[in-house]
């Protein structure tokens, strides 16, 4: 599938959901209001639906065209993930990205329960060591020093209190 088709499709789904909710916004509390609070959301939603639809169509047509042009490459294209785009995204490793996202989500969820210092040590240590196992010594030092410095600067110099966990 062409990337634009998928992107347009996802955008279209979001836009349709948004528009449906927009239609359910109740009228203003004030009788004197000229423009109801649902007007802008509905307009935005409809326009968003249209452009998403156009992008999906464009992506679909481009896909059809390339397929006709180059039947030979067709199979290879369908198996491997799309190699189009500006060169930077295509080298992404889906497994790696998923793991990174999982570690990041865990950090966000543990930020308050474990407190800033502990959760950040775990996050930085976990993520850096996952990505570069060989340099675990450097990564571990980084993981411990970074949160402690930040904690000190925030709590003692700036009086922005970072969450404390069960231990400190």
């Amino acid at each position: 599938m062409h990337k634009d088709f998928l992107g347009g499709l996802l955008s279209l789904i979001a836009a349709v959901i948004y528009t449906i909710i927009a239609f359910q916004i109740p009228d203003s509390n004030f009788a004197t209001d000229v423009i109801q609070p649902n007007v802008f959301p509905i307009l935005i939603g409809i326009a968003w639906v249209i452009v998403s639809f156009l992008l999906a169509i464009k992506g679909f047509l481009l896909y059809q065209m390339t397929r006709k042009e180059n039947v030979a490459e067709h199979k290879a294209r369908n198996q491997a993930p799309s190699t189009e785009g500006t060169g930077e995204n295509e080298k992404q490793d889906p497994v790696k990205v998923t793991v990174i996202l999982a570690i990041f989500l865990a950090y966000l969820l543990l930020f308050f329960p474990l407190g800033y210092v502990l959760s950040t040590i775990l996050f930085i240590a976990g993520l850096t060591i996952y990505l570069e196992r060989r340099k675990w010594k450097r990564n571990l030092i980084y993981a411990i020093v970074f949160p402690l410095i930040i904690y000190f600067v925030f709590n003692d110099l700036l009086s922005v209190y970072l969450p404390t966990g069960p231990f400190f």
Partner: peptide, 18 residues
């Protein structure tokens, strides 16, 4: 040196916390 410092800070903050 930094890591020693860090550990000390960690211990200190553990003491007056809680």
């Amino acid at each position: 040196l930094w890591s020693v410092l860090a550990v000390i800070t960690l211990l200190l903050s553990a003491c007056n916390g809680g």
